[in-house]
Write a protein that binds this DNA or RNA. Structure first.
Lengths: 339, 339
DNA sequence: CCAAGACTTGGGAGCGCTCCCAAGCTCATT
DNA sequence: AATGAGCTTGGGAGCGCTCCCAAGTCTTGG
């Protein structure tokens, strides 16, 4: 299969390479007849412009990088990441950008790669999933001019100058806890994680709902987990000693682990203990019983992250963009509600 | 942050750009003293070579593409894909290649992109997860010179000229079914998928084990599923009407769905029905009960796919490489074994 | 009719690097 | 002493494209 160049196509169509370039880049100032002739030759030859030459001449690669810092490594099988990656990939396809992936195994690797990602011209911009409390990656790339968007809220101290796309975690947890309270439950536990800002915000929303409804906050009803099914199982086993009537789990994976722990004690969901999750993963609706959960618009977040990044690349970095997407409560059987 | 060029670094170090190029590319014929001087200037300036210029001049991008055809779209949250992607990404990092991702939404998109992927110089090679029966993507790129490796066995007709990395699915299913037979079970069901070659091979191994041990194959004990937990649940519900004593599920996700269906009927695993899966996903060991399963070396497969592709890129496409990785049976509680 | 502006086209130059060959120096062998 | 081989260094050229400006043609308004 022959590699054609602009010059080749120009000769075949009887025009210059400049004209061919104008045609493939949809620029004005080419007559319709000439345009048609060039497009015909392109179709017949299967010509594809050389990516490296385009990048070098135009100073942009049309490649976006998706970065996952090393501390997310063990959580990577959580469906949340598959859904985010899928949404980002599809959005890139829509906009004629290529997504590339940077999954790091160590902080050293991150330090080594950050400079190269920011300076080599390999990528036009970055999407960073870095709402974890102790990730340094964003700090490392900030001195450079490379455009980036964070998925998840940054810490408050740096939030003003960092563009991010987040979901309203606090409101979601508030909805979940309020729903359980409205169902009449008083001893409401939480399976919480404090590794990232999402975890903190969900914890805050849970606490606010209890306070707003005049319920006391019993710290013994809050067990720490990480965002995995197995970790949720262990945390729920611990929480069962406190005899909660209901439990809010900060993610669906945690919720499924909690359900498994409850059933392993021959208790029933929701008859003995009601459960609410957060995410509305594909698995939630088909769980036993179907899971009441807070739906976060993951696909939408991924899409918006790409679009926000392209906006930054194409217009200007300032002002920083802060997008917080609404969540909604999806009531199914696990909370004992009659829906 | 200034963008430095080879010329800049050469001037600062008092050498030509050719010498700087030789230093950053680890080429011989540069004196140690000069090398050191250049490296010092590089450290002080933070110089990063421009990727597009390198690609254009050297005719290689050092970017590998990972392709997932559109029919895998709905299965993408299966942890198998996260693990494969993670392994591929890490192997790319080790070899100083950048992974890029092509998740397609339609066959049209695939057709449109195949030519560009194969011809634009954007990527040096492709890894294709395309063992599904009706994927056309591999056929579309074959006329081009682009190096590629398939993950999963191709159909027999095209197997000789396509390089692939697979696991021994047939042997794995044989082990699983044999284990159940050795436990004394006679009415052994299967939750099967026939969408891809892995599914076919696992079905073949299951059948061969039964035949080898003189057990009849009862087609009513084989229910069709796809590779998801929910689909496994539904298929198991169907299979329960046939009263199996044990069941081999072609993946861990299917097995977890089967376990849930069994428990929803107030039956116990393994006391009432034994279950064996395939994959050894992170979830398998921590399931209730811990899942007996066939471990496939996903991380190893992903790594080998990258290394095989680099070998093809760096040496030659022929002969095609066929790598089949061994699997192993991991005995836990779900099959009723005393381990 | 003339001048100015808009449209169309082509060619020079540059983007930042790698590849390749020429030139110079040093060392070893005859 | 002369010659050849090996090492080191530098500069020309090219990779394939985009950007920019010059030149030519056509249209419109005064």
């Amino acid at each position: 299969m022959k590699r054609w160049t602009l010059e080749d196509i120009g000769k075949l169509a009887g025009v210059s390479r400049s004209t061919v370039s104008r045609v493939i880049n949809d620029q004005p100032h080419t007559s319709p007849a000439v345009r048609q002739r060039v497009e015909q030759v392109i179709r017949e030859t299967g010509y594809q412009p050389n990516s490296a030459a385009r990048s070098l001449a135009s100073s942009q690669s049309r490649i976006l990088g998706l970065v996952m810092p090393s501390i997310l490594q063990s959580a990577f099988t959580d469906p949340y990441y598959a859904l985010i990656i899928q949404a980002i990939s599809h959005a890139c396809n829509q906009h004629d950008y290529t997504p590339s992936l940077f999954l790091f195994q160590s902080a050293d690797e991150e330090a080594k790669m950050s400079q190269r990602l920011a300076s080599s011209g390999l990528i036009d911009g970055l999407i960073v999933t870095a709402d974890t409390i102790d990730s340094q990656f964003v700090q490392m790339i900030q001195p450079y001019a490379i455009p980036f968007v964070q998925i998840g809220r940054p810490l408050r101290e740096s939030a003003t100058c960092i563009s991010y796309v987040d979901v309203d975690n606090e409101a979601g947890a508030y909805l979940a806890a309020s729903h359980l309270i409205q169902q009449g439950y008083q001893r409401i536990g939480q399976l919480a994680t404090l590794h990232n800002t999402a975890g903190h915000d969900r914890d805050a929303g849970f606490r606010r709902a209890l306070l707003d409804r005049g319920l006391p906050i019993d710290e013994k009803l809050i067990a720490l987990s990480s965002f995995s099914e197995a970790s949720g199982y262990r945390a729920m086993q611990q929480l069962l000693t406190q005899k909660p009537e209901a439990v809010f789990a900060q993610s669906d994976a945690i919720a499924l682990g909690a359900i498994r722990a409850i059933r392993d004690q021959d208790l029933r969901v929701p008859e003995d203990i009601a459960v609410v999750g957060f995410d509305d993963m594909p698995l939630a609706a088909s769980a036993s019983p179907p899971l009441t959960t807070v739906r976060q618009p993951i696909a939408r977040a991924g899409k918006l992250a790409v679009e926000t990044l392209l906006d930054i690349i194409q217009t200007s970095p300032q002002p920083a963009r802060h997008i917080v997407l609404p969540v909604e409560l999806v009531i199914r059987a696990s909370s004992g509600a009659v829906s």
